[in-house]
């Protein structure tokens, strides 16, 4: 069982990376907050990041829409944006391969099953701005492995709150 070193939440809108100047002072204030998160991460030196974001019809569509999907792959390419040939131009974030953490990811899946939530899992996922914008500012060198967890809050039926809470508990237990 690991130790929860730090927990943080932030917005992930593409403009945070791609066109922050458009937000003026508000953008600067926002980035000051992101810097605080980064400093907290630097101090805590986590071994792995469990990152939750919502699906945007990037990995999934209605032929198969998981409520919650844990990324169990060795690595994930990001950023990837649908129909965008050069996501770096769109987000000002270079495309790269983000290291995963399969053993922790699989423990989280097992923990979720044990806790009564049948999460999905996949080794073949790409990371869009929802994952890459926060990572880019919090761990700019992408030197901490990431377990990405996709949550469907995009389209009915979304997971009910108890499933989300029980999945979160399994993350904490793992």
């Amino acid at each position: 069982m690991g130790e929860l070193a730090v927990a943080a939440a932030t917005s992930h809108a593409p403009g945070i990376a791609g066109s922050i100047e458009a937000a003026g002072d508000r953008g600067q204030r926002f980035h000051a907050g992101l810097t605080k998160i980064r400093e907290t991460f630097d101090d805590a030196q986590p071994d792995v990041i469990i990152e939750l974001s919502n699906e945007h019809f990037v990995n999934f569509y209605l032929h198969n829409m998981p409520a919650i999907c844990v990324g169990t792959g060795m690595s994930f390419i990001g950023p990837v944006e649908p129909g965008v040939a050069n996501p770096e131009a769109f987000l000002k974030i270079p495309q790269s391969r983000v290291e995963g953490h399969p053993s922790l990811a699989k423990d989280i899946v097992r923990g979720a099953y044990a806790g009564g939530v049948d999460v999905a899992y996949s080794e073949d996922l790409v990371l869009d701005h929802g994952f890459m914008v926060p990572l880019h500012f919090i761990t700019p060198n992408l030197d901490v492995p990431v377990v990405p967890i996709f949550v469907n809050n995009l389209i009915e039926r979304c997971p009910c709150p108890s499933a989300s809470i029980n999945s979160a508990k399994s993350c904490v237990r793992s």
Binding site: Y61, L62, P82
Partner: peptide
Amino acid sequence: AYAVGKMIWDMGRNLDLIE
């Protein structure tokens, strides 16, 4: 709507299809 959306989704994942 499913089929129209599926076409858009497929195209988003396949730049050759957009071309």
